[in-house]
Design a protein around this nucleic acid. Sequence first.
DNA 1: GTAGAACTTAGAGCGCGCTCGAAGTCAAGG
DNA 2: CCTTGACTTCGAGCGCGCTCTAAGTTCTAC
Lengths: 137, 137
Amino acid sequence: MTQLLSIQEAVRATGLSAHTLRYYERIGLIDPITRQANRHRFYRPEDLQWIAFLTRLRATGMSIEHMLRYAALRRQGDDLSSVSARKRMLDQHTATLEGKLVALQETLAVLHAKVAFYTKREEALKSPTHHLPKRGA
Amino acid sequence: MTQLLSIQEAVRATGLSAHTLRYYERIGLIDPITRQANRHRFYRPEDLQWIAFLTRLRATGMSIEHMLRYAALRRQGDDLSSVSARKRMLDQHTATLEGKLVALQETLAVLHAKVAFYTKREEALKSPTHHLPKRGA
DNA sequence: GTAGAACTTAGAGCGCGCTCGAAGTCAAGG
DNA sequence: CCTTGACTTCGAGCGCGCTCTAAGTTCTAC
């Protein structure tokens, strides 16, 4: 049958803490997780997929408020207005991430240059008789 | 001569708020900015360069605590231990950013796929007589 | 001389996203 | 029966990075 996971197993599977999993459910990011007789949660594979997607959105900087809007649209069902709105949200996030990607690449270039500079400086300082320290940035 | 900027001009130049500029100085991220007779700060081009670099580090997720360590090393001067430590910090940050870059690209791929899916779904919903709604993720 | 704008300081406050604590329930093992 | 331990709920607390407030100074314009 489908594998159902306890909260601790979900913790391992998602990388989130049990506190965070309950918190996400409490605020409505995650639909109410089905319970066993003892009221313990058990997570279905589809819950984990949704949580993994949420984690992606969070890790790339989407606010919880926005994720809540997305989750609400998802609950609304697959009518045109929901589908269009979700698409717009993801389009918007995509654009944001493309901007971040560029910024990140620029920063990586700056860091590579700085590291190269420090490497030279380091070598000069290690053998002061062979090279005078360089001037510069 | 070198151009000196008031705090408002520094705000425009850096994109940070005046509050944040003072805050950074107060906690030691920025060295004490020189003052005019009326005690107002005036920022030198080199201050702005340093602030721009800090802003890059922040924007790519370096914590203020780490930036403070970097700033302290910089104040220490260009001896071997400072240069090596700064290089190590930037190397470390570079590695972190390379990881983020990959994650970001993965998320962008997921988003592109989802948007494509929603686009199809949207079209199907707009002309329901021509296409039945699709099943799927 | 007075109003207003732009700055100064020190310290309090805030929003986000968790994170934790307290107290209770339940099932299994000894 | 009693402990142990994993879970439950609810609400309070926290760390980060600002952000704002209040009160004071100084300069410029009228």
